[in-house]
Amino acid sequence: MNLTLKVWRQKNNQSEGSLETYQVKDISSEMSFLEMFDVLNEQLILSGGEPIAFDHDCREGICGMCSMHINGRAHGPWTNNTTCQLHMRAFKDGDTIVVEPWRSKAFPVIKDLTVDRSAFDRVIQAGGFISVNTGNAVDANSLPIDKKDADDAFMAASCIGCGACVATCVNSSAMLFVSAKVSQLALLPQGAPERESRVLNMVAQMDKENFGNCTNTYACEAECPKGISVANIARMNKEYLQASLTTES
């Protein structure tokens, strides 16, 4: 198939960006979306241009590095999917595809489609862990965990930190990302000792990073490649309220 691409080009975080138009020909429907970008980049290099910078690594939907806003949707038209797992059979001959980076004040553009998501790392640094030094652990089976809690913790932990939730939210809220980690650790007995300080500190850091607030549009859940549930946001709100009421400040 032949396609028209409109791609966001921006030299660096100081410069202004704009959409540039490119044509690609003979694209196979078996290709992945990023393989189509590889074809475009080879074309650009050979014609004396500069290739488009975009983040990608594992190309199997798990590392969370790829991050394209495609035709107005984070990770493109398929649900529960990452950009790298999107395949060209989602499009048809003659289509025009608009590709932009994640848009959020907390995720400044570095170059073209590449953004800086280090804010997520700083939120984790604020409390997204259990303080257990290497060698401190007791036998793994000494603490049975209700299977349902374990399963729910696992579902929350399947977040890949790609930032689609932020990119798709009208408020650029990171509530889904933060609540997934808060939930995972709140559901497990190992997380109990730091339960209150964790949620308070992570939310405080989230606010500091310029993420917006949550107005329950549920767009984040709809666009999350891993299908993380907004029930986690409700759980985080409960954790936050409880911690606020019981923690001395």
Binding site: F129, A137, A140, P144, D146, K147, A150, F154, L188
Partner: peptide, 16 residues
Amino acid sequence: DQCVAQGVPFAREYGG
């Protein structure tokens, strides 16, 4: 042991 203590959600049986 270390991973479970960190909160790694390994698969579990119904007995926990």
